[in-house]
């Protein structure tokens, strides 16, 4: 096991597994947050948020989630440093766009943008719900906090930009995870790639619609 984790292939497997785990989190997060689209003044959404904040299984998974995020970042840093060392003298002219997609070569940049967004995002909602009594004490609701945050067009722009970054990160990450885990097959790979493309477009789009809908007043 130590040999596996120390090898380049093992490190990539950690990236793939944590990546897929984070993808599964996106499904849950997106589903719960979509409760705002009931357009019922956030009643269903607040109930969902309360469940997620109090259920012991979810709270445990929250810790696992943070471990997953940190592992994904840590392993990415190690791999990137290693990759930079592998080519000390760069090409004067490198027509990389002729042989690969820009987003597949920019996973580090896209990931950094997502991390920066994550810090803002956690500070805006997660810190308030977990470490202050603003919501647990009944002074306000998470839905009201969303309305407050998304009243600013700048916040909406930051969220939109972050969701575009997430979309491209997933577009490469989803299919790449399967390849790294050795799951490449003439019959199933086109199917996995189609699911990955669909996921990378639909999930960030639904997320992006949340700040937009609240800002525009479509969801009240």
């Amino acid at each position: 096991m130590n040999r596996f984790l120390a090898s380049s292939l093992g490190k990539k497997a950690v990236m793939a597994l944590t990546g897929l785990f984070l993808i599964s989190f996106l499904v849950v997060h997106c589903a719960i947050n979509s409760l705002i689209f009931y357009n019922d003044g956030g009643v269903n959404f607040n109930a969902g948020a309360e469940f997620m904040g109090t259920n012991p299984i979810i709270r445990t998974m929250e810790i696992v989630l943070f471990i997953g995020i940190l592992l994904h970042i840590y392993q990415a840093l190690i791999l990137t440093l290693n990759n930079n060392k592998a080519r000390p003298v760069k090409y004067t002219l490198n027509a990389a766009s002729a042989n690969s997609k820009w987003y597949s070569r920019s996973m580090g940049l896209l990931g950094t943008l997502i991390l920066m967004f994550l810090i803002i995002h956690l500070k805006q909602f997660w810190v308030i719900s977990r470490f202050t009594d603003e919501i647990t004490g009944g002074h306000t609701t998470l839905f009201a906090k969303m309305q407050e945050a998304f009243s600013s067009p700048w916040v909406v722009v930051v969220y939109l930009f972050a969701m575009i970054s997430l979309g491209y990160h997933l577009l490469h990450g989803f299919r790449s995870a399967f390849q790294t885990l050795g799951l490449n097959n003439k019959k199933y790979t086109p199917f996995i790639q189609a699911i990955g493309t669909g996921f990378s477009v639909i999930v960030p789009f639904i997320f992006a619609m949340m700040p937009v809908s609240i800002h525009m007043g479509w969801v009240k």
Binding site: S7, A86, N99, S100, S104, R175
Partner: peptide
């Protein structure tokens, strides 16, 4: 072979598939 590959100082695969294209 993987051990030797890592020791030689090659980088890690990020599945860009530039290799296959070239």
């Amino acid at each position: 072979m993987v051990k030797q590959m890592d020791e030689e100082g090659f980088g890690n695969c990020t599945n860009t598939y530039a290799c296959e294209a070239e």
